[in-house]
Simulated scan of single mutants.
Amino acid sequence: MSDDLAKRAAELSTALRDLHKALIHAEAGDDPAYANPYTLLFDVIGNPRFAWLESLSQLIVVLDEARADKENFSAEILADAARSAGRLIGEGEDHDAPFRLRHLMAVQNAPDVAIATGKLRAALVRLT
């Protein structure tokens, strides 16, 4: 994997993880039960309240696993990940409508989500 490809993949991965974190905190809101980070972790894993984040979680895992395989990581894999990320936040005609709706609600209610979304969009632009 070239240094440039590795740098662009790392930027996308970081932007996706930052959005994921912001969305988790936005979904948790001010619920006092989530003051305990272990409660939050277990609910992110198993509570239906957070299930809508699964597609983003899976994208992060797929991208990071692919990045770890430096010999086989390619520009095509990165482009696929970028397209998947774009679909999640509403880019393209085949976007993920259920995720997009929840994402838009979070953008309106949580400035951290809006900032993380902007960083992801900027990363996606640099990949094109």
Rank of each mutant, 00 (worst) to 15 (best):
D30G: 09
S84C: 05
L124H: 04
L78R: 08
T128L: 15
I45H: 05
L101W: 01
T39K: 00
D30K: 15
D96I: 03
L16G: 02
G92H: 08
M1K: 08
V62T: 15
I60E: 05
S57D: 10
K21Q: 10
A10W: 07
D112M: 11
K7R: 15
S2Y: 00
Y38P: 00
N109M: 10
V62F: 06
L124R: 08
D69G: 12
L41T: 10
I89L: 04
G29R: 06
R67I: 15
G92T: 02
D3H: 11
L88G: 05
D112Y: 00
R8A: 13
K7G: 08
N36A: 13
I115V: 13
E11S: 12
F50W: 08
N109C: 11
H20E: 03
R121D: 05
V125G: 11
S55W: 01
Q108W: 09
A79W: 01
D69Q: 15
D80Q: 09
G46Q: 00
M105R: 12
D112C: 00
R83D: 04
D94I: 04
R8L: 13
R17D: 12
S74Y: 14
G92M: 02
P37C: 11
L23D: 03
I45V: 06
D112I: 04
A75L: 12
P98S: 01
H20Y: 14
E76C: 00
V62K: 14
L53A: 07
A26V: 04
E54L: 01
E76Y: 00
D96W: 01
A106C: 05
S84Y: 05
N47I: 08
P37M: 13
R17A: 14
Y38M: 13
G92W: 00
S74G: 12
P32C: 09
I45S: 08
P48R: 04
K7S: 14
L78T: 09
R121H: 08
V125D: 12
A33C: 00
L63R: 07
L19M: 11
L63V: 14
G90F: 02
T39Q: 12
A81C: 09
K70N: 15
D30T: 10
I115W: 04
G86M: 11
L56M: 05
I45L: 09
S2K: 07
A82D: 07
D69Y: 11
A82T: 02
Y38G: 09
E11H: 03
V44F: 05
I115T: 12
R102W: 02
